[in-house]
């Protein structure tokens, strides 16, 4: 064990692999020293495990109705009670994690790279490219996210794919802004001039040298935004424009449970807990990542 640690922390690694692993290990080590980040990481890990192993963890079929067992309070049989159609809420929450995770991942996979590339291209080329790209970005940015997403879902029609697309469309502009601002701070630096002098094409300079410098702030930002994305998705579900019944989407579940909130509190509260927990998890993790990855904290000098 001591050998492995020494190998990872070696000041003069002997191969690319060792250098890369060493860096990752240092980040993990620093994260592990941050209690909130650890809590966040555990919650996010739980979410992922739950989503992957949903059929094993769930105690019942999430969409099987059983009208004889409507609105039962939490008990040993139904850990979180049942809803108005007699479905097991625990199982629905567990399967719902798959939808949440899909939304979050797809939004991150679509919005972050688009924003990153648009921002980096605008910042790198400047001039008209910048003005046009940032003009478009600002139009999107000037509208509140939920309303923008609402407008797109209304146009595309309700449904989970459309909700994902709508949220991604609402999310990329802020990433583009960040990426542009970061690109501007080092686009005139000498290390960029040096690769240009070696004959690198603009694509290569952006792809290999500029984007890697924006990614850590992007990871932080995306992680912190995850909570917002989950809430937006839940919001869309709540007003019936997101995932459609019988899909166990958390927002939609709250929406349906709201009618019984006074007498059967668990129907709306249980998925609500799930949303809060997961959002908090991403927030903590994002905060921790910021402490660890933010170059101003340690990397420079």
């Amino acid at each position: 064990m001591a050998n492995v640690t020494d190998w990872l922390l070696d000041d003069s690694p002997a191969s690319r692999m060792q250098a890369r692993l060493g860096r990752t290990y240092r980040i993990v080590l620093a994260l592990a020293k941050n209690p909130l980040a650890v809590v966040g990481a555990i919650i996010v890990a739980l979410l992922i495990v739950t989503a992957l192993a949903a059929p094993l963890i769930a105690t019942a079929d999430p969409i099987a109705q059983n009208l004889s067992q409507r609105l039962l309070p939490p008990s040993a049989d139904h850990w979180m009670g049942t809803d108005e159609l007699g479905r097991d809420i625990w199982s629905r929450v567990v399967f719902g994690s798959r939808i949440t995770l899909t939304i979050v991942l797809l939004v991150a996979v679509i919005a972050a790279p688009v924003g990153l590339v648009v921002g980096a291209v605008a910042g790198y080329f400047g001039g008209w490219t910048d003005r046009i790209l940032m003009g478009i970005t600002d139009i999107f940015l000037s509208m509140p996210k939920l309303i923008l997403a609402l407008a797109f879902v209304a146009a595309l029609g309700p449904g989970i794919q459309n909700a994902i697309i709508a949220i991604a469309i609402a999310a990329w502009p802020s990433y583009a802004r960040i990426a542009r601002a970061e690109t501007l701070t080092f686009r005139n630096s000498e290390f960029i001039a040096a690769v240009q002098l070696q004959g690198a094409s603009a694509t290569r300079v952006i792809g290999r040298h500029i984007l890697p410098l924006c990614t850590s702030s992007m990871i932080i930002r995306v992680t912190l935004d995850m909570a917002g994305i989950i809430l937006t998705a839940a919001g869309l579900g709540f007003i019936g424009l997101g995932a459609q019944p019988p899909l166990p989407e958390w927002g939609a579940m709250i929406s349906r449970g709201r009618t019984f909130i006074v007498d059967q509190w668990w129907v709306a509260t249980m998925p609500g807990f799930a949303i809060i927990l997961v959002s908090l998890g991403f927030c903590f993790l994002g905060d921790g990542l910021r402490d660890v990855l933010d170059p101003k904290q340690g990397e420079k000098q």
Binding site: T185, N188, K300
Partner: peptide, 8 residues
């Protein structure tokens, strides 16, 4: 100086 001045 280049590092300490705000580039933008």
């Amino acid at each position: 100086p280049k590092f300490s001045l705000n580039p933008v």
